[in-house]
Design a protein around this nucleic acid. Structure first.
Length: 600
RNA sequence: CGGGGCGUGGCGCAGCUUGGUAGCGCGGGUGCUUUGGGAGCACUAGGUCGCAGGUUCGAAUCCUGUCGCCCCGACCA
């Protein structure tokens, strides 16, 4: 490809002000993407080449694992999503799905994911266990109406994703296939030249049993990962389980109310009364909204030095109820409190608050759902709210079980926690960018969409399913986050838009021009991915652009071309050698081979 | 959803407080010079200052509304 005739670069000298993180800035400055709207980007030719390289790495690995590529529609009829009971949650509830009506008034959604469509199709073509297992995948644009799109392609409203769905005749077969996919994912990310870690993850609204996320570690990552140094444990904070630190025993023996004027927070109460946060039971209130429109008040208790994990809480409540939980919101709005509750001193609530606090006129359920974190159930005495404004209370031998509390793990694990009673290993924390996620869905979707097959015993059974996603455009940006320097991007060669860039420093010199053409032709004839910067610009301009767009090898053609000599530069190591042009191709082949092998 | 900020040529910004009809750097075009790390000189094109009202003789500037975008928060009784 030639820059002047077929491959315009479109680099920017100044960083557009909208970009905050380095990978986003470099994507814009390098002319890889152009913003069309909030969270909506055009992928320019140079970006598309990166996307295509990542895609083909994925395809190769998945095809080797017996998966078949197809392409599904992006416009989904609402009925399909109503069958899986996700329509309400994805539109009115979370609102993540763009939805629209056609001229007949029929409702559609723009697909954020494809479980419904693929399951309904699979059920039509799969009749017998003899056809299983099967795995279909596609690489396609997904749509998600994110609350706050940000960081360029990291969280955009339109993005390219590889999504795959597997079908099995048994739980065991699903589980073994899932293991194979885990391995395939590790290969894919390694083949993209990325450092990733696999972590246990929450399966979220997709649902299902086991789930694992693949993370590129980076300070700008939106997820927190907790792990042990030895690698024995790694999990997303949403999912991570640990032992909280030991509490400091409370030395008070009388059950008394005491005054705590204007001390609404744990910190205030501790500071003014010489208490430790672990001696306090914090009461946090939520309102749960269900798909059947019912609203239920939730009362949760947790040790004062710990934090509620809303994902765990959400999943727990969801499991307990027949109707789907759509939304869980912290109760802090005074208008809502006044409308639904009576005599309710927010900030001074104790675990013994009774159900009479819920007004008869409220449309809420008339009793609190009480959930206590394991961290409080063992406390023999503690301080909590006195159910009276400006008062807290010392509790003695309070029984959460007797008060109808469900005791469960609803706590955020945090760094420094021990992972188990047997182990002294402590959790460390890092930020991560999620680039892949695999799930064992089980029969959740096949049951709802009536996707059955005949098993060996002649019985109709629901298909077992797995689902596997990779953020293709996100990989591209995460790769930059992991591979850049002060001059620009330094692509891993596997996903670089080109393998090598030729930079003639002065095309008016006939010697240079001739040599440039010779080398370009030679490389092209060997099917090497090569870009020729044939602009009649000054050398400095081309050097700057070359470093910015990050192609791993540069061939610099300059004054020495009279002696048939050029310079060969390696972008990541910045090493530069002078070499006779007749040896150049051989040198490139051996050096690029080293680079491919090093990265994968 | 809450809070903050910003909309002025392709990009980065100034001008707004104190109204007088738009400017700087980069980029684009042409010419000459230059030619190994974002060149110099000269000439040149390009903006109804987000949009809609209002105040005024006069609005980028003041007022009202509206739209859009960016950033932060979602740590908590």
């Amino acid at each position: 490809m030639r820059v002047t005739t077929s491959f315009p670069l479109g680099t920017l000298r100044d960083t557009p002000s909208e970009a905050e993180i380095i990978s986003h800035q470099l994507l814009l400055r390098g002319g890889f993407i152009r913003r069309v709207n909030s969270g909506i980007y055009a992928y320019m030719p140079i970006m598309l080449r990166v996307i295509e390289k990542i895609s083909s790495i994925i395809e190769k690995e998945l095809n080797n694992n017996g998966c078949s590529k197809l392409l599904l529609p992006q416009l989904h009829p609402s009925e399909l999503w109503k069958k899986s009971e996700r329509w309400e949650g994805y539109t009115a509830g979370e609102g993540i799905m763009f939805n629209l009506k056609d001229r007949q008034g029929k409702e559609f959604g723009l697909a954020p994911t494809h479980e419904e469509v693929i399951t309904s199709i699979a059920s039509e073509i799969i009749n017998s266990y003899k056809q299983l297992p099967l795995c279909f995948y596609q690489i396609q644009t997904k749509f998600r109406d994110e609350i706050r799109p940000r960081f360029g392609l990291m969280r955009s409203r339109e993005f390219i994703m590889k999504d795959g769905y597997s079908f099995h005749s048994s739980k065991e077969d699903l589980s073994s296939f899932y293991g194979k996919m885990e391995k395939a994912y590790e290969n894919i990310f390694k083949n993209c030249g990325l450092d990733t870690v696999g972590v246990d993850a929450d399966s979220g609204s997709i649902g299902g049993a086991a789930s694992k996320e693949f993370m590129v570690t980076a300070d700008v990552g939106e997820d927190s990962i907790l792990f042990t140094e030895s690698g024995s444990y790694a999990a997303n904070i949403e999912k991570a389980v640990s032992l909280p630190s030991d509490e400091i025993p409370l030395k008070k023996s009388k059950e008394v109310l005491f005054e705590t004027p204007n001390q609404k927070s744990v910190i205030d109460v501790c500071q003014k009364n010489n208490l430790d946060a672990s001696q306090i039971v914090k009461v946090v209130l939520f309102v749960a909204k269900f798909e059947n429109k019912s609203e239920v008040p939730i009362l949760t208790c947790i040790r004062g030095d710990q934090h509620i994990n809303e994902v765990k809480l959400f999943n727990l409540i969801n499991k307990k109820y027949n109707s789907n939980l759509i939304h869980l919101k912290i109760l802090e709005d005074n208008a809502i409190i006044e409308k639904n509750l009576i005599n309710f001193p927010l900030g001074y609530i104790g675990p013994d608050i009774n159900d009479e606090t819920i007004k008869n006129t409220s449309n809420w359920d008339k009793s609190w759902i009480r959930i206590a974190d394991k961290s409080v159930s063992s406390l023999s005495s503690f301080v909590s709210g006195g159910n009276k404004i400006n008062f807290h209370k010392v509790f003695q031998r309070f029984s959460f079980v007797e008060k109808n509390y469900l005791i469960s793990d609803i706590r955020n694990a945090k760094k420094g926690d021990r992972i188990s009673i047997e182990s002294s290993e402590e959790l460390k924390e890092k930020r991560g960018i999620e680039i892949g996620h695999i799930f064992q869905l089980g029969q959740k979707y096949s049951e709802k969409l009536n996707a059955k097959f005949s098993d060996k015993d002649g019985q109709l059974k629901s298909l077992w399913m797995g689902c596997y996603g990779i953020g293709v455009t996100r990989i591209a940006q995460a790769a930059i986050e992991q591979n850049h320097d002060e001059n620009g991007i330094s692509w891993p060669i596997q996903i670089s838009p080109f393998e090598v860039l030729i930079i003639p420093t002065n095309l008016k010199d006939p010697n240079q021009k001739k040599l440039t053409e010779e080398i370009y032709k030679e490389f092209k004839s060997k099917k090497i991915d090569i870009l020729l910067d044939d602009r009649e610009d000054r050398a400095g301009v081309k050097f700057k652009d070359a470093d910015l767009i990050g192609i791993p090898f540069q061939i610099i053609i300059g004054r020495d071309s009279i002696n048939k000599e050029v310079e060969f530069l390696c972008r990541p190591s910045k090493s530069k050698i002078k070499i006779a042009s007749k040896n150049l191709l051989e040198k490139f082949i051996s050096e690029s081979k080293v680079m491919y092998n090093k990265n994968s």
